[in-house]
């Protein structure tokens, strides 16, 4: 069961709110100091990329964010509804940033319904 689930219309201003929520969820999950910063930065980055993908395609669907905590660590999933091909066009700087901030990074895509989920793992 997700600890926290948020969905938001793809507007840049809302990404800040989600960063705060994810940071608070990470703190509640027991992460501290720099680790909480890493969650905020990574979730902000993943959400910014999702919003940018929706904007490129004129999509108003919500971006979904789920934060989970279990014995293995803290996990965040950021899901968009953009066409799958667009996920391959992710900004390399953003991907470098994400890869460096998380313990493990995975992307899963679906063609029908379209969308990509970025899985962020923090241990």
């Amino acid at each position: 069961m997700p600890v926290v689930r948020v969905s938001f219309t793809p507007a840049p201003a809302h990404v800040r709110t989600v960063r705060l929520v994810a940071g608070a969820a990470a703190q509640q999950a027991g992460l501290k100091g720099e680790a909480v910063d890493e969650v905020r930065f990574a979730v902000g980055e993943a959400c910014a990329q999702a919003v940018a993908r929706h904007q490129r395609h004129g999509l108003r669907d919500r971006v979904r964010v789920e934060c989970d905590s279990n014995g293995a660590g803290f996990t965040v999933r950021v899901s968009d509804r953009a066409p799958v091909d667009d996920a391959a066009n992710s900004d390399p700087v953003a991907m470098a940033l994400l890869s460096g901030l998380v313990s493990d990074l995975r992307m899963t895509s679906s063609a029908d319904p379209p969308g990509t989920t970025v899985h962020l793992y923090f241990r």
Binding site: R19, F41, G44, A48, Q49, D91, V93, A94, L97
Partner: peptide
Amino acid sequence: EFCDSTGLGVLV
């Protein structure tokens, strides 16, 4: 306090 890849892109 915070800078994402969009900000880095502006600097680049």
